[in-house]
Design a protein around this nucleic acid. Structure first.
Lengths: 136, 136
DNA sequence: CTTGTGGTGCAACTCGATTGCAAAGATTAT
DNA sequence: ATAATCTTTGCAATCGAGTTGCACCACAAG
């Protein structure tokens, strides 16, 4: 696992106090985090700063965003070497019971045959159901 | 193509003025509609009435909702015989240029191998890119 | 006719997301 | 080192899609 400093350096994003704590928090979580989640975890950091930090991270492909249908956009750290290209896509799983969102890096991704002249640029794939913790 | 009256009857939803115009509008569109889209199209019908109509339609599986990442939930009429089960899932395509959302009924749907103990209930699959009109 | 049920329109509210602005911090040029 | 410049941050205000409360209306049941 890369450190916060390494990631910021590789992605050419300047290291600041807010960026460090936000990225550290994201790395420490197994599930994707919403702005609200992060805000609650980092009580000394302003919401708008976190918001802009997330935008910066997303632009620089440090994190990717997931719309899981909870109404809040979730963010998760990209895998090493990810460029957020179609080839880097992976499924997400949203638990209807505990409302957590997971990145399913290990589930193989189907090559989708789009109709004539449609061109894929990104995708947002969310499977919903019960996670292993809640499916009991 | 089923008529508005037929659909409402089959799904056991009472026919009202608002329901008729909303469903007729949805059927007349090739792309999924947001609440705002419908509101703009049906200028004499109140937003909250459309909103509640859409909820009613969704509960009764007349339409399904799509979170395409535009920030607005889109709605599209279900295919005939759809029960909104996992087996009825289909991909959606969101055009980054014209912001339209399409149902890709003809693109085969992969059977997703979830990790141990994860259970699928629904899914929201959105491929983003350029549609045939914008990819020129 | 009276009562009840559900649908509709209006207005107000919620809440996550976003922006404007000024202060603080970092960087570069002088 | 100091001044000028650019970036980041915190605060407050705003935006906008979604949602709700309430009164009114239409239609159905008793």
């Amino acid at each position: 696992m890369q450190t916060v400093d390494e990631i910021l350096k590789i992605k050419n994003v300047k290291n600041t106090a807010v960026r460090t704590v936000v990225l550290r928090h994201l790395l420490s979580q197994e599930k994707a985090q919403s702005l609200k989640d992060i805000e609650n975890a980092l009580i000394y950091t302003d919401r708008s700063s976190i918001f802009r930090t997330l935008k910066t991270f997303e632009e620089n492909k440090i994190i990717h965003s997931i719309e899981d249908g909870s109404g809040m956009i979730k963010y998760a750290v990209c895998a090493e070497g990810c460029n957020c290209d179609p080839k880097d896509l992976h499924y997400h799983f949203y638990c209807n019971n505990c409302n957590k969102t997971f990145c399913l890096f290990d589930v193989p991704f189907q090559n989708i045959e789009l109709p004539e002249n449609f061109k894929i640029q990104q995708a947002n794939m969310v499977v919903k159901g019960l996670c292993n913790n809640c499916n009991k």
